[in-house]
Simulated assay, not measured.
Amino acid sequence: MKPGVFTQIYIQIVFSPKYRDRLLKKTIRGEVFSYMSGIITNRKHKSIIINGMADHVHILIGANPNDKISDLVGTIKRETSTFINEKRWFREKFHWQDGYGAFSYGRSQLDAIYKYIANQERHHEKKTFKEEYTELLKKFSIEYNENFLFEFFDNINEF
């Protein structure tokens, strides 16, 4: 950044594996999320917390204003797909689903959103990813067409 430029931009990013497959098992999440954090840091964003469930990821960053969120998400998806495929955790090639959600927060909201992301397992005992995601869209007054949302599972139990 240039001298004299001061920013404080917090963004939550949400996306899921292709076909909404529940591939992000607990056994690999830590390694995948750590790899994502490295990508975020290398692009000069601040990685605050990354967590999720088998079928989706939440990322909270302090955003670098010189890097577009769409470019960051594209890089995260591309590089983690390569990383996961090189690990050969799955018989088929791993891919992320097209699209993502990006939601902005103020500094006063960071503690609450951090706790929300940290407690994904407990949160999803009561709510499906579809309910969670559509609530975020509504909370942020984002107009959407159901036909263009992720494909969602109705079953909230992780296997």
Rank of each mutant, 00 (worst) to 15 (best):
F90M: 05
D55N: 15
I50C: 13
R43K: 10
R29T: 02
F33A: 06
S34P: 10
I76Y: 02
I113R: 05
E121Q: 03
Y144K: 07
D111K: 13
V73M: 10
F103C: 09
I142M: 14
G74P: 05
E151T: 14
S70P: 04
A63P: 04
T134E: 13
G106S: 15
N85I: 03
K87L: 01
G52P: 04
Y19I: 06
D111Q: 11
S81Y: 09
A54Q: 03
I61A: 09
S37W: 06
V14C: 12
G106Q: 04
K126E: 13
S47V: 08
Q8R: 15
E146D: 13
K127M: 12
K44A: 07
S141N: 15
Q109K: 00
F148H: 12
F94N: 04
E86N: 15
K18R: 14
N51Q: 08
K18Y: 11
S34G: 05
F33H: 01
I13K: 01
F159W: 08
I50M: 08
E132R: 05
T134D: 00
L110M: 07
F140E: 14
F129Q: 00
R20E: 03
I117K: 09
N42H: 10
K139G: 15
H123S: 00
V14Q: 11
M1S: 13
V73D: 01
T41W: 01
F83D: 08
Y116S: 06
D98V: 00
I61D: 11
I48S: 02
Y114L: 03
I84Y: 02
K18F: 07
V14K: 04
K68E: 10
S81K: 01
F15A: 07
E146F: 04
M53V: 05
Y100V: 09
K126M: 11
V57L: 04
K26F: 06
K77T: 03
E31L: 11
E79D: 13
R107T: 12
N66Y: 04
Y10V: 07
I50S: 14
I142V: 15
T27W: 07
N51H: 04
K93D: 14
V57S: 07
I61F: 08
E121L: 07
W96S: 08
L24H: 02
E79T: 01
D111R: 09
I9S: 05
G99I: 05
G52S: 03
P3S: 00
K115G: 09
K138I: 12
